[in-house]
Amino acid sequence: MNKPLLIESRITEDVVFGRNVKVVQPVNIYGCEIGSDCFIGPFTEIQKTVRIGNRTKIQSHTFVCELVTIGDDCFIGHGVMFINDVFQSGGPARGDKTKWKSTTIGNMVSIGSNATILPVTICDNVVIGAGAVVTRDISMPGVYAGNPAKKIK
């Protein structure tokens, strides 16, 4: 009988934490920077090169992939998924990072549960509704919802 390779969730030594960060395990956090007074919920993965600003809260079951920057005073709801591979050649990049794109989230941004954020830039003071799919840059403050996300307020 074949046995799988078991890999435990962990926080690696190359993570830079600010002051007073709370992390609820299990999590996978590696090669990133997390600002002061942040909260990271359980079952969350934050990959290398990610930068998270001060006083940002990331709820459970969230995936923050490489090339994502999140500003200060943000709220990231349960089950939010950030995407860096848009399948530009018709399929997955298969580790070819030259095909990946970056995402920048401004300050005071709230993203509702189960939203999907493709490689975009979102300005300050934006609310993204639960379940929204953000496919384009957002340059004006407001409330956005739907698939694709559109300004509703």
Rank of each mutant, 00 (worst) to 15 (best):
T49V: 10
L118D: 02
F39L: 15
V120M: 09
G79V: 06
N125Y: 01
T98F: 13
M108Q: 14
A93I: 10
S89E: 04
D37Q: 09
T98R: 15
V23M: 09
F39Q: 11
N114A: 15
E33D: 01
I117G: 01
I83K: 05
N54P: 02
K99I: 05
R55I: 04
D85S: 02
R55N: 10
K48I: 02
K99E: 11
K57N: 12
W100G: 08
F63H: 05
D37A: 10
V23D: 07
N54H: 13
P92F: 15
V50G: 01
G95D: 04
I76A: 04
V86Q: 05
S102A: 15
G90N: 03
V23E: 07
G31T: 03
F82W: 13
H61E: 00
S110N: 02
G131N: 08
P119H: 05
F43M: 13
T62R: 00
G95H: 11
H61K: 00
V50E: 01
C65T: 10
I46Y: 12
K101G: 06
P42L: 02
G53P: 03
S60E: 02
K99G: 04
V68Q: 08
G106Q: 14
I29G: 04
I40E: 04
G41V: 07
G90H: 02
K57Y: 06
P42I: 06
D96K: 13
D85H: 00
C65L: 03
A130T: 15
V86H: 03
G71Y: 08
I34K: 06
W100Q: 06
K22H: 02
G95V: 08
F82K: 09
S36C: 07
P42T: 07
K99S: 05
V50N: 01
F63R: 08
K99P: 02
K57S: 12
P42D: 08
S113F: 03
V68P: 09
M108S: 15
T98C: 14
T121V: 12
V68A: 13
V21C: 14
P42A: 13
P42Y: 13
Q88W: 01
F39R: 14
M81D: 07
N114F: 15
I76N: 04
N125W: 00
T116C: 14
V23L: 10
N107C: 08
D72F: 13
T49P: 02
I52H: 06
T44G: 10
T121A: 10
S60K: 00
P92R: 15
A132N: 10
G131H: 11
V127P: 00
G31W: 07
K97H: 12
V133I: 12
G129H: 05
D37Y: 13
H61D: 01
R94L: 07
W100A: 06
E33S: 09
Q88I: 06
M108V: 13
N107T: 11
